[in-house]
């Protein structure tokens, strides 16, 4: 029996992955189906609302929270490939519901939070797998990302998944736990500091000699990757899910 047999997973692609990085949610679908899960994509989904909340626009974030609850309420497992968006759902949705002074919504968010997982957590904690049968014969370095570590609190699950990948060479990223400087709208409201931080992160990544910089969050990767690309460092960005989707038998979707 496959670990995911009998489990229906509602994929929360997140707005940025849906729009800018579709290969990541595709990879999630591939891994989850390979492990036996039935994956659904409720198309009424939009965004976790984090960008609005974190910029101080609470009123404007309320509809996103309502929409999340309405979209995913019927599912037991809601899985998204972003520590930051998942962290925002868990940590901020109840707060926004309280701000909306809507008790029903508050109860609903508190309940749905229990069923919302980051992709790496779902694999390790719910499906109980670390080796997902992936093969990736490349040198990679892993950036843990702040919100995965400190808000979604995924711990070392991404690293455990990576270590089980066949053919992979994992290189240690210097000062891995330092923020890359993306920070949502921080990246455009404080562009100078953001770039200063990102440049240090990019330099650390390049210093490892890795081909790929891997993380569980495409937003951070978009920022660091943008700097890596501008500087022609040759280091590519890649989401954890895309490494896990890669197998020896078949290329990714």
């Amino acid at each position: 029996m496959a670990p995911g047999d009998g489990k229906t997973v509602a994929l929360f692609a997140t707005c940025i992955n849906d729009t800018m990085f579709p290969s990541t949610p595709k990879a999630v679908v591939q891994v989850l189906e390979r492990l036996g899960c039935k994956v659904v994509f409720p198309k009424s989904q939009s965004c976790c609302g984090q960008m609005l909340t974190n910029t101080g626009y609470y009123d404007e974030a309320i509809p996103s929270v309502r929409n999340y609850v309405k979209t995913f309420d019927e599912y037991d497992y809601i899985v998204g490939p972003s520590g930051s968006c998942i962290g925002a759902v868990r940590h901020q949705h109840p707060m926004i519901a309280r701000h909306a002074k809507d008790e029903g919504l508050e109860t609903a968010t508190e309940d749905i939070v229990q069923r919302t997982y980051d992709f790496s957590e779902f694999l390790v904690d719910v499906l109980g797998v670390e080796d997902v049968g992936a093969y990736f014969p490349h040198r990679v370095t892993f950036h843990p990302t702040c919100h995965s570590m400190r808000i979604a609190k995924v711990g070392d699950k991404p690293q455990r998944l990576l270590r089980a990948v066949r053919g992979i060479t994992l290189l240690e990223l210097p000062q891995a736990d330092q923020c890359c400087g993306f920070g949502g709208t921080f990246s455009v409201k404080n562009p100078d500091v953001s770039v200063a931080m990102g440049t240090d992160k990019a330099r650390n990544a390049a210093s490892t000699g890795a081909e790929y910089l891997v993380a569980g969050d495409n937003a951070c990767l978009m920022h660091i990757g943008g700097i890596l690309n501008r500087g022609n460092t040759g280091v590519q960005r890649i989401h954890l899910a895309e490494i896990l989707a890669n197998t020896e038998e078949g290329a990714t979707l």
Partner: peptide
Amino acid sequence: NWTNARDIPMPPAQTFRDW
């Protein structure tokens, strides 16, 4: 503010939801 020092990926022709 973004692109002064960072490139930004070209969005794909097909979104995930279309796929």
